[in-house]
Simulated assay, not measured.
Amino acid sequence: MSTVEEAEKAVETYNGYDLSVRLLTVNKAAPGGSQPKRRVVVNSFKIYVGYLAWQVDNSEQAFSQHGKVIDARVIYNRETGRSCGFGFVTMASETEMNDATAALDGHVC
């Protein structure tokens, strides 16, 4: 960044930013080996969904029966475009996340 203000704005804007399957961690660089203070990112209500059938392209339908789905994504291989067989579903609340997990854990889609 060209100024301290730009760096601080970038940290404020992008630290904790949800980038598909990961939350970004953005801090100002620390001089000479010192460590910046770690910032705590509030956990989202995101569920890992594994062992998806190759043809599954949207996990939202099964989960929406257990609460409001904020986001549902199947992860694809960038080079082949083929499903990786897993994805993530973000629910609106912890209760909905727990209900969906309890109801669908081990469920065959």
Rank of each mutant, 00 (worst) to 15 (best):
Q35W: 10
G106V: 04
V11P: 01
W54H: 14
V41G: 03
K28W: 02
T95H: 15
Y14Q: 03
V4R: 12
G106D: 09
I70Q: 12
Q65C: 12
G50F: 04
N27K: 07
L104N: 05
R82Q: 14
E8G: 02
A62L: 10
M1Y: 09
S44P: 00
V41E: 06
R82F: 10
R22E: 12
Y14L: 12
T3Y: 10
A102Y: 13
F86Y: 13
E94K: 15
R73C: 06
K68D: 12
G67L: 09
K46S: 07
S83H: 08
E6T: 06
G33H: 06
S20L: 13
R73D: 05
S20E: 14
R78V: 04
A92E: 13
F63T: 02
V40M: 00
K9D: 06
A29W: 05
V40A: 09
N15L: 02
A53F: 07
F86W: 05
Q65G: 11
K46P: 01
A103E: 14
Y17N: 04
N15T: 01
Y51G: 07
V21D: 12
E60W: 15
G32I: 04
T80L: 07
E6K: 15
T90I: 03
R38G: 08
T80V: 10
G33Q: 07
S20G: 10
G33F: 03
I75G: 01
V49A: 01
